[in-house]
């Protein structure tokens, strides 16, 4: 992804510094979500609900890349970019299924928001399967952007060293 390089110290929504911080936050929330036995069900459900807006901001911060690659989907592109595009789309669909099924089988959040519905274990099974698949998908996603993450962490706070220009 070609990222406009904003002022060196600024943290705008499109800057690499913002994106790195946001990705770290997203990763921490995601790891918390992977173990509901450890965090307890209420925290798991609230963190799961919080992941939806976090995901939207992550997509918005990388929106230029998404638009660019989707517009040129039928044109010749490097294999890595094409793989990333397909993988990210798949990950988005699985994430939406995991969040939606999580809301549908929720016990604490839905009740505390004033809604009541009978607990349906079918959605619990859908949620469990989609969440497990999502963990593996995220692993590959992180592997694809490993260089970008390392480059961002190595970068000095003053921003003297330019970081790589990888995709989302």
């Amino acid at each position: 992804m070609t990222v406009e390089s904003p002022a060196k110290d600024s943290v705008t929504p499109r800057s690499n510094r913002f994106r790195l911080r946001w990705d770290v936050l997203q990763f921490v929330v995601f790891v918390l979500l992977t173990a509901p036995h450890a965090t307890g069900l209420p925290l798991h459900e609230w963190a799961g609900l919080a992941l939806a807006p976090i995901l939207v901001v992550h997509l918005a911060a990388n929106w230029d890349w998404i638009v660019d690659k989707t517009r040129n989907v039928f044109r010749r592109q490097p294999g890595e970019v094409r793989f990333n595009h397909i993988w990210n789309t798949l990950m988005f669909v699985v994430a939406v299924v995991a969040i939606m099924s999580g809301i549908l089988c929720s016990r604490q959040v839905v009740r505390s928001l004033g809604f009541s519905h009978p607990v349906d274990f079918f959605w619990a099974v859908v949620h469990s399967v989609s969440a497990t698949v999502l963990i593996a998908l995220v692993g590959v996603h992180l592997g694809m952007h490993f260089r970008w993450v390392i480059a961002q962490f190595r970068r000095s706070p003053r921003g003297c060293k330019p970081a790589g220009e990888d995709g989302p």
Binding site: T34, T132, I135, A136, V138, G139, V140, H141, L142, G143, M144, F146
Partner: peptide, 9 residues
């Protein structure tokens, strides 16, 4: 589950 596919990739 996350690290193994990530490291392989």
């Amino acid at each position: 589950v996350m690290a193994v596919p990530g490291l392989i990739t």
